[in-house]
């Protein structure tokens, strides 16, 4: 891992060595985050990550003390800031109406990419906070324009957003298929921090925690977030 991003994710203050594949996955997202996406510039993506990070830190406050988001209209439409903040703090409140408003304001590809940036930032920050180490500074945005690319084969699977129709795995694997590059880095995080190749195996050998121990943590996190899925 020769890049600056990889060095940033050394996690030297952690109480134990963090596996290389976790560090590499975090670095891969950081590098992707800084670059233009399909719908947003690098500066916009890093701004969304900053908003997600700030909002995540507000979760300890009751809603009436969190203050209002302060969007910068020179960066992105105001609804983008609201959407990032809602994903970070109150994602269980996102319903079909909210998602439709977001998509009307931003466009579907832009909404999905914004979701992808937000959730990956929170996953990495939540890991650092759980470890008790400092969060890694956000990357410097790289110049360039969004590609406008949109994958083929998307359709209605009953979600708020269009997803790949030709797909055999669990729905969470195609939830962000409208932003394939970001979905790829997200599943890099999932594979290193949870499971991909051994997902279907109920008994994990040669792993530090047993499968039930990992699933207990997953269930508790899901319950605290009031996640039905």
């Amino acid at each position: 891992m020769p890049s600056a991003a990889a060095d940033a994710f050394a996690y030297r203050d952690a109480p134990h060595v963090v596996r290389d594949d976790i560090r590499a996955a975090h670095a891969a997202f950081w590098e992707r985050l800084a670059r233009p996406g399909a719908a947003w510039t690098g500066a916009q993506r890093v701004a969304f990550a900053a908003e997600a990070r700030a909002a995540w830190m507000l979760r300890t406050e009751p809603p009436w003390l969190r203050g209002q988001p302060d969007p910068d209209p020179t960066i992105a439409p105001a609804f983008a800031t609201l959407a990032v903040r809602t994903i970070a703090l109150d994602v269980h409140k996102i319903d079909r109406v909210f998602a439709a408003e977001a998509i009307a304001a931003l466009g579907e590809a832009a909404y999905v990419e914004l979701v992808a940036v937000s959730v990956q930032t929170i996953a990495i920050d939540a890991f650092a906070e759980a470890l008790g180490v400092a969060r890694v500074p956000l990357p410097t945005p790289l110049p360039g324009e969004p590609s406008g690319a949109r994958p083929e084969g998307l359709g209605d699977i009953g979600a708020h957003v269009a997803c790949l129709l030709d797909y055999a795995g669990p729905n969470v694997g195609r939830a962000m298929s409208g932003a394939p590059d970001d979905n790829a880095t997200f599943f890099g995080l999932v594979g290193s921090m949870y499971a991909v190749t051994d997902f279907m195996e109920m008994v994990w050998k040669d792993r530090p925690l047993s499968r039930p121990q990992v699933e207990l943590i997953a269930a508790r996190v899901s319950a605290v977030n009031e996640c039905f899925y």
């Binding site: 929170i122 979600a159 899901s222 039905f228 899925y229």
Partner: peptide, 15 residues
């Protein structure tokens, strides 16, 4: 960390 991301993917996209 990763499940705080996964739950948000599920709810933000409404799968």
């Amino acid at each position: 960390g990763v499940f705080n991301g996964l739950v948000r993917v599920a709810d933000a996209t409404g799968i």
